[in-house]
Design a protein around this nucleic acid. Structure first.
Lengths: 179, 179
DNA sequence: ATTGATACAGAATTTAATACGGCCATTATG
DNA sequence: CATAATGGCCGTATTAAATTCTGTATCAAT
């Protein structure tokens, strides 16, 4: 399958919201984006060109950000996964922190509600490499402390799922919210 | 681009380790797996069939786990990202916890070193849905407490990078490890 | 030195992506 | 209310890419 490169949506042209068919398409393509439009059409009940048209729209609108190869971390020698909380004086996207983000080992950087703290996901070859990354983080100006959570084993890891939005059963002890 | 479905590697047939060319290929395909083999070959200095052969091998060996559409969480109405630590009595992949993993909102479940605790990444439509998920988690047998980290903003989020393994400069105050 | 295996390039073939035209349904408009 | 305009789809035709095939060079092991 394929066509023009997925681009980041610079502008928001046709932001029609995704319908049930689009979700089905997304569900299929998250599992496997290497199938043909004929196969995709079959699975969601469309002709190949119609499926193609939908996918093009999903790309244009930015619903599909990218079509990417998912790499096994072990294959590229990064078997060690860790999450790091760093407490910072104030928030921010400091230049020092952004320098850290250029390391290929760093996969995610989020700022977190409550404390002034950042949550970072890293994948390294071994504990030695993790140590280097951590000491670099600790030396970053504004960082007051770090806590690391080294992952022993991963039970589930998957990309964003389109999933049909279903309701959770309200816990009995919980009142319906006012708004 | 593409061919037969990426399969999970049941057996380990040709586990030759990835060389520099393979890393280049992975680097390109992580960015954009929709390019043609001609284009891929150009970028890494191979003929189209040779590039194709490499990619097939990377799939067979499991280095490329999947080729997937990356979805914008906002497009599927999941703008809220949170990490949840749950403390558990003992470890484990209890049936109850595994039931949680079937919710499409749950993206990752890891067990963590040190405490007996699990780290869970979830993405929901709103705080209401998060609340439902959390109360469900708290009601899971064996769970003694939960802590949630709601993400305010994400500065970096990307897939596993093949990256050329480079050395960190050893911190000056740190001795070389003995092994 | 010879054999075998591996990786590659180039050409040939098959398959899939893409472009085009027409149809139907829904929605906007006079 | 009638009618135009739009959007989404299908079927077909064309073009481009994936895939197969064959020969060759390189390297390793016998």
């Amino acid at each position: 399958m394929d066509e023009e490169t997925d681009g980041v949506p610079q502008n928001r042209p046709a932001a029609r919201d995704v319908d049930a068919t689009d979700r089905k398409i997304l569900g299929v393509l998250v599992d496997d984006a290497t199938i043909s439009y004929a196969e995709l059409g079959d699975r969601v009940g469309l002709s190949p060109p119609a499926a193609h048209e939908r996918v093009k729209r999903l790309r244009r609108s930015g619903a599909i950000r990218n079509t990417a190869a998912i790499i096994d971390p072990k294959a590229v020698r990064k078997p060690l996964l860790a999450f790091v909380h760093i407490d910072t004086k104030g928030w921010g996207k400091t230049p020092e922190l952004m320098a850290i983000s250029e390391r290929p080992e760093v996969e995610e950087i989020h700022s977190v509600a409550g404390d002034t703290c950042m949550l970072i996901k890293v994948r390294t070859e071994d504990t030695r490499a993790l140590e280097g990354l951590l000491s670099r983080l600790y030396e970053t100006p504004g960082v007051t402390s770090t806590r690391s959570y080294v992952v022993l084993s991963t039970y589930l890891e998957r990309p964003v799922q389109p999933g049909i939005t279903t309701e959770w059963p309200s816990p009995r002890h919980m009142a319906k919210p006012l708004y």
